[in-house]
Nucleic acid binder design. Structure first.
Lengths: 198, 198
DNA sequence: TAGATTGTTAATCGATTAACAATC
DNA sequence: TAGATTGTTAATCGATTAACAATC
């Protein structure tokens, strides 16, 4: 069965803990200890790990930290390096270019913008060079951080350039064709939950 | 019964559509049309709206746009203005200070940072002035955008200043006492879902 | 061995969707 | 009236949690 979105969302959290343990030379880990660290249920952790790990955990011992890291990275498809780009070199775009929380092999390599002045920065380029760059370097993932009103037309342009996967931070629901994968990141939804949860 | 998190997350999306309609002088809206716009199921939309709207929709007609906006805003507790602050005036912190996607009444009024040089900006202040400001202005919500390694100690300091609700963007799971509400925003989890969903 | 932890099967819980009578 | 749309009740679906035998 295909993995569920909720499990997918938990995997990076496991990965973070496992890498911390790795850096502390801890060899084995139990689902109980991972669960405790994250405030999850240990059965849930075990079920999640069962979806991705190639070797079973050992009763009484737990899992091998290094193996688990490899298995999760392979499953998440982040065991090979991957270049992604940002459209819109405003503050948010630049923040994402420098974000330290993405997995090691994910590199936000370039931002594109219509503003010539922004292109002084070594990693920011003019929007009109987008299509050539995407084709030449086989980029498939783009993050959109342009202002709301520009977002849909920029999105169309990005798709035209050959991008297949879009992560949208503009506060608008972008419409894309069926063959394009999109996630509309909704910060106001996150805030709504935070302000109102129990 | 308490509202579910998933419903809570959908409400801001409805609000966005409704406000767009309001600006276009559309008076009535059906759950079907909202659902279509967002790619949701119309029964789901109706159920969600039933949780928050004070007056029933009219069969054959739908809901009154203006009323729905008021009801959702009241429910989400964003019908009165609310000041929130940012801790860490890096690119992400500044991006959030200028983000246009939050609801009107939510104002990110100030950022705090340990770097004196950043405080040239009119809205950025030294960290050591945090506690006084929070107490004096009765601030209850803070966004943390400091580097990962500083995050937990900054978080402790923020709690000590009197903040009750924390929205953490640093890529680490912050630990807080039971009486503090926290959301660890996990961008690498979002990316994991995007790269691997179906 | 005894204790810790595993994976699996079954039970529970909650969210989504379907069906449908009511009504503007 | 006929068509559109509502709110509610029941069915389905999937995720979480509980129970437990197996085993290191």
């Amino acid at each position: 069965m295909a993995i569920s979105v909720v499990t997918l969302e938990r995997l990076p959290k496991y990965l973070r803990i496992l890498k911390k343990m790795q850096s502390e030379n801890i060899n084995n880990v139990s689902s109980t200890s991972i669960a405790k660290e994250l405030g999850f249920n240990s059965i849930q952790v075990r079920k999640d790990l069962a979806c991705v790990s190639k070797t079973d955990g050992k009763p009484g011992v737990g899992f091998v930290v290094n193996d688990l890291i490899n298995d999760i990275e392979e499953f998440l498809n982040i065991n090979h390096s991957r270049d992604i780009i940002v459209i819109g070199a405003g503050r948010l775009g630049q923040a994402l270019m420098n974000y330290s929380g993405f997995e090691n092999k994910i590199n936000v390599v370039r931002a594109f913008d219509i503003d010539k002045n922004k292109c002084d920065n070594k990693k920011i380029f003019l929007m009109k060079t987008l299509k050539t760059y995407v084709k030449k370097n086989n980029i498939s993932v783009a993050i959109i951080t342009v202002p709301k009103d520009a977002a849909q037309s920029v999105c169309d342009e990005v798709i035209d350039s050959g991008i297949k996967v879009i992560w949208n931070f503009a506060p608008i629901n972008l419409k894309v064709p069926d063959n394009i994968r999109i996630k509309n990141e909704d910060l106001s939804a996150s805030l709504a939950v935070l302000l109102n949860s129990y």
